[in-house]
Simulated assay, not measured.
Amino acid sequence: MSGVERLRFPDGTSLVFKYATEPFTREGQVLLLAARYGIPVPQVIASTVKDGHLGMLLEDLGTPLREADDHDGVTAAVIVHQARAAVELPALDEEALRRLPDRALEHLSRLRDAGRWQDTNVIEDALVRIAGAAEHRARGADIEPYGWVHSEFHPTSIHVGRRGRHLLDFARAFTGPGLLDLASWYGTVDPPDPARLRRLIEAYVHAGGHHDALAQRAGLPAEAWGLGWHRVWVVEWFMEQSVRWVNDPATDPAYVKTVQRHLNDATRLLEP
């Protein structure tokens, strides 16, 4: 759904060409917005969207000096979360967070109407449980840090080069609880590790992040709340992909397995 190429010109200069299909086609606008708000991102030389496809020419930051580590992550997160909130971004506030499991159930209903995802009662039961507790468990979404959320915040989203750190892959940025960025840092391949995330949040606060990042939310430790809602956010995103963006029954077994795994994590963390 997206790709990156380096373009080399006869005079020795180079640019990066990034292309993407929906739903990643607003990244050019978001990068321009991020730069305006003081977030270090590659300069957008040109950007256009045509027939549901994005094409961008970006400055070439060069080969990274090294992979980003936890220190790079918390430092970059502090910069992003301290930026002034952008009204232009979609919002994932308390009400929108509460709606996530309901949205996932709507996706499941459409998939079943299409004759897909038939043997998924376990997924439905988990979503119903989380939806029933969501009004309570979504509380605290607006506790600081609240504002810019990168949303795809991983080590690969930070370019460490000769000119410092730059943030990449801003296509799905939104306004919401910054804990979701920290919860995404270690990825979703391995089981969520609340103790590890707690240490990352503490390092984030030590690096200048808002102290309330450590505060409890809805009766849960910050790390459990962040990891649990991040997994629900991922579940809704995967199910929307299955319905709308990918819409390929051949991918259903892999998507069902992934959604089930993340829901198991979410129910354990959010304790619905």
Results as ranks from 00 to 15, higher is better:
Val44Arg: 12
Leu200Ser: 11
Phe174Cys: 09
Glu88Pro: 07
Val189Lys: 13
Phe24Met: 13
Gly12Trp: 12
Leu200Glu: 10
Val41Asn: 07
Arg26Ala: 14
Pro272Ile: 12
Leu182Tyr: 03
His136Trp: 08
Asn247Thr: 01
Glu240Leu: 15
Asp265Asn: 06
Arg244His: 11
Val122Met: 08
Tyr186Trp: 00
Pro191Cys: 00
Ala85Phe: 08
Leu32His: 12
Val259Phe: 02
Val189Glu: 14
Val4Lys: 11
Arg244Glu: 10
Glu135Met: 01
Pro272Tyr: 05
Leu7Tyr: 11
Ile143Ser: 00
Arg98Glu: 13
His262Asp: 05
Pro64Thr: 01
Ala218Ser: 15
Arg139Met: 07
Glu124Leu: 08
Gly38Tyr: 11
Ser47Tyr: 12
Leu58Lys: 02
Asp142Met: 05
Ile158His: 06
Pro10Tyr: 15
Gly219Met: 11
Gly28Pro: 07
Ala134Glu: 02
Asp119Leu: 09
Leu127Thr: 12
Glu152Arg: 10
Asp69Leu: 05
Val149Glu: 00
Val122Trp: 10
Asp190Ala: 12
Ala96Pro: 00
Val205Ala: 10
Glu59Ile: 03
Glu124Ile: 09
Ala183Ser: 05
Thr251Ala: 09
Tyr186Ser: 01
Ala222His: 10
Gln260Glu: 11
Arg172Phe: 02
Val160Thr: 04
Arg217Glu: 03
Ala224Leu: 14
Ala224Val: 07
Arg8Gly: 02
Leu270His: 13
Leu167Ser: 00
Ile158Tyr: 11
Pro90Tyr: 10
Ile201Asn: 04
Val259Arg: 07
Ala266Val: 06
Gly52Pro: 02
Glu88Ser: 13
Glu67Asp: 14
Gly73Phe: 07
Tyr186Ala: 04
Ala254Thr: 06
Pro221Ser: 13
Phe238Glu: 15
Leu269Gly: 07
His206Leu: 06
His159Leu: 06
Ala76Phe: 09
Thr251Lys: 02
Gly161Ala: 02
Ala250Glu: 11
Leu105Gln: 06
Leu167Cys: 02
Leu127Ile: 10
Leu263Ser: 05
Ala76Asp: 00
Thr267Ile: 15
Ala134Asn: 03
Val234Pro: 05
Glu223Trp: 11
Asn264His: 13
Ala131Gly: 11
Ala68Gln: 05
Leu65His: 05
Leu168Ile: 05
Glu223Tyr: 09
Pro191Asp: 01
Leu227Ala: 04
Ala77Lys: 05
Phe153Tyr: 15
Val4Pro: 01
His71Val: 12
Phe153Gly: 09
Gly228His: 07
Ala207Pro: 11
His166Cys: 03
Arg231Cys: 13
Asp60Phe: 05
Met1Cys: 09
Val149Arg: 04
Asp252His: 02
Ala104Val: 03
Ala134Leu: 03
Asp93Tyr: 00
Met239Tyr: 12
Asn247Trp: 01
Gly187Phe: 00
Arg196Asp: 03
Asp169Tyr: 05
Gly115Arg: 11
Thr251His: 03
Val189Arg: 14
Gly140Arg: 02
His206Pro: 01
Thr267Asp: 13
Thr251Asp: 07
Val243Ser: 08
Val30Arg: 10
Gly147His: 01
Leu214Lys: 09
Trp185Ser: 00
Asp113Thr: 08
Trp237Ile: 13
Ser109Pro: 00
Ala76Gln: 07
Val234Asn: 09
Ser151Tyr: 14
Gly219Phe: 13
Arg129Val: 03
Val44His: 10
Thr258Ser: 07
Pro40Ser: 04
His71Phe: 10
His136Tyr: 04
Asp93Met: 01
Thr13Val: 04
Leu33Glu: 12
